[in-house]
Structure formats: structure tokens, C-alpha cells
């Protein structure tokens, strides 16, 4: 089953710098998204939707909280050895 990589072919993300390039594109688009909001006319259901960059902050914070809670609270509670049920 273990076919050790015999091929020496270079794939897309093996090239040095291609990951960096991708991250570069990613961070640029983040900045564009931050700026573009200024030009959007909002019609919110809730007042906080009108706050500047509400969705950016919420998206970021939500995911950090998600990971922290899952890793430091949930995992110690529920993780068992693989043969726990056997």
C-alpha cells in the first residue's frame, strides 16, 4: 500500500514560493474585502450588521473560539483511546 514517492515530478505546491504566492493572494483579497465594505450600501435586519467590518470580526472570532473550545475543552472531555469501545 505504501508507495513511497518514487516520482521526482514536482507538483504545484512542491515548488518553493508557490505556497507563499497563494498566501499573498489570500491576504490581498482579505484587504480588498475590508475595503469593499465601505462602498456597500447595507440594509440590515439587526443594528450590529451595520457596524464596520462586523462580519470580518465575527467570522474570525467565531473560528478562533471554535478551535480553542474544541481543543482545550471538548477534546479532554471526550477523547478516548481508539479501542475504547472494543
Amino acid at each position: 500500500m505504501h508507495e513511497k514517492p518514487k516520482d521526482d515530478r514536482e507538483y504545484l505546491f512542491d515548488k518553493p514560493g508557490s505556497v507563499k504566492k497563494l498566501l499573498g493572494i489570500f491576504f490581498t483579497s482579505l484587504v480588498i474585502l475590508l475595503i469593499i465594505e465601505i462602498f456597500t450600501k447595507k440594509h440590515p435586519h439587526f443594528p450590529w450588521e451595520g457596524w464596520a467590518e462586523f462580519y470580518c470580526v465575527y467570522g474570525f472570532v467565531a473560528c478562533v473560539v471554535l478551535v480553542i473550545v474544541a481543543k482545550y475543552i471538548l477534546r479532554p472531555l471526550v477523547m478516548r483511546r481508539e479501542d475504547y469501545y472494543d
Binding site: 489570500f26 483579497s29 482579505l30 474585502l33 475590508l34 469593499i36 465594505e37 456597500t40 450600501k41 447595507k42 440594509h43 440590515p44 450588521e49 467590518e53 462580519y55 470580518c56 470580526v57 465575527y58 467570522g59 474570525f60 467565531a62 473560528c63 478562533v64 478551535v67
Partner: peptide
Amino acid sequence: MPHVVAQTQILFFSALAF
């Protein structure tokens, strides 16, 4: 426009968190 922007923002900034 606001919906597309809001949704893209929330996704990209969760990706940033990741």
C-alpha cells in the same frame, strides 16, 4: 451586494483564522 460581501467576508476571515 451587501449579502455577497458579508458572506465572503465571513468565509475569508474564518479561513484567516484557520
